[in-house]
Amino acid sequence: MYRNLTIRQKQIVWAWAFLAIPVLFYTVIRFYPTGNAILISFQNWNLLGSRTWAGLENYEKLWNDPVFWKVFQNTFVYLLLGTPISLVLSFIIAYHLDKLRFMHGFLRMLYFLPFMTSAVAMAWVWRWFYQDVPIGLFNNILAGFGIPQIKFLQSTTNALPAVLAPAVWAGLGFQVIIFMAGLRAIPTSYYEAAKIDGVGWWTVLTQITIPLLRPTIVFIVVFSSIGFLRIFDHVFNMTTNNPGGPLNATKPLVLMIYDTAFNGFDMGYAAAQTVVLFTILLIVSLIQLRLLRST
């Protein structure tokens, strides 16, 4: 029977044969749980009892929950600070590292190392950095210059940036590597032509390098935005005594979901929050792709 098919039909048969495993995987591991989560968000369930229909109750509760709005705001602060800072930093590092020949491989490895390190270990090291004198590194240095101590993790204004810093630092290595690959892909003759035309380095950077890096930038922005919107492990490990504290100042959406689900056992409410997070991720990614792909 297979013999009698046309070449095109045979290709289709093979394509589906190869697609079967990912299709099965996505259905069981991705689509089914996603659908189930959306379903649970309209129900009440405490993990053990039976599910009862709740309609839009969970979403109403969310809308009227001041903690949710605080958490919502925190999540966007992580995104709006984290993405541009890590983008600019990683570009500056990659731009200069690309020009460096001396110990190039070693330096690249150093930048990449934090990306491979466990977030938990990193968070605890940074937590130690932030302690008061005589334990904390930063406050010891500040004290050495006679500057008063800074409450990094205990202040509601300082805590979020203090938690964000290691998260940015951890992601840099990966972004630097991607940027360097993008820089390498630009033909040298573009730069040579610019050199002969006698334009300055700023013009080369803004008119040639950055426009040609556009696909790389799109990738990094989308990728790191998703990362910052889903931030959890750094926050959780740096504020273990009072996760998301002080006073919910560092609590991101994922941590709230975790809290609601596994401390409050309010699965329906947690599912509603998850659906909101999912929607935010989808919208932000779509907007970014649109904005950065146009022209």
Binding site: S189, Y190, E192, A193, D197, G198, Q207, P211, L212
Partner: peptide, 21 residues
């Protein structure tokens, strides 16, 4: 002298024209 000061212009094998302009 820098290339720009030499009063020359060059055409490259791969043209080196900028795809975004």
């Amino acid at each position: 002298l820098e290339p720009k000061e030499r009063d020359i212009a060059m055409v490259f094998q791969n043209y080196a024209i900028y795809p975004h302009m």
